[in-house]
Amino acid sequence: MTFRAAVITFPGSNCDRDMAVAIENVCGGEVHRVWHGDAALPEGLDFIALPGGFSYGDYLRSGAMAARSPVMQAVVAAANKGVAVLGVCNGFQVLTEAGLLPGALMRNAGIRFVCREVALNVENNDSLFTSRYFKDQRITIPVAHHDGNFFADDATLDRIEGEGRVAFRYAEEVNGSARNIAGVLNEKGNVLGMMPHPERHIEKAQGGIDGRALFESVVRTLVSA
């Protein structure tokens, strides 16, 4: 079975090529590039990735306009059918704005744009995105964002923690996120949003390879399924 992935490009996305290259290198298979105005996705997708960037110039709220673009209706439908969906950085913002993930991503508590490598703790290695990590593994992944401050009310936070839906937690103070949450899964576990950029750490030339295991997890779970 050939692994079939799609990377969505919105106007203002800037990590879409990095994401496509990461998927090609680590997962292999076919990677389709899809434009935000497309109403339909390619047939038979296993995996959809929403990349980082500044879709629609972050107008209104980060991810707000992209979440209402034509292709997102197809992404929401695919996610509801169980297709694996990963949103990184702006992609995470789009997934919360589209209602596929709980909470919202607000301006960093320190106001400043944060662009550096951060330490993460793998909280859940039981998901299709994280099975190739060890539980509580300490990994290093770059972040680059202005609006990464994860917010949800206490009841929602308690629920997602109780259901094991926190995939990654910052192991240091980064942006003021509630309970240091860096990555969240949906209820069914087939949608993951995270602010750090795993696609930027897949080969040694990039300064680290801790992001590889995420893509290895995805291809291993989906191709053997």
């Binding site: 209104l60 709220r61 707000a64 209402r68 919360t96 704005e97 709980p102 909470g103 919202a104 607000m106 917010f151 949800a152």
Partner: peptide
């Protein structure tokens, strides 16, 4: 509700 405000925040 659908666009102008994000009612989570």
């Amino acid at each position: 509700q659908k666009l102008l405000a994000n009612q989570v925040i």
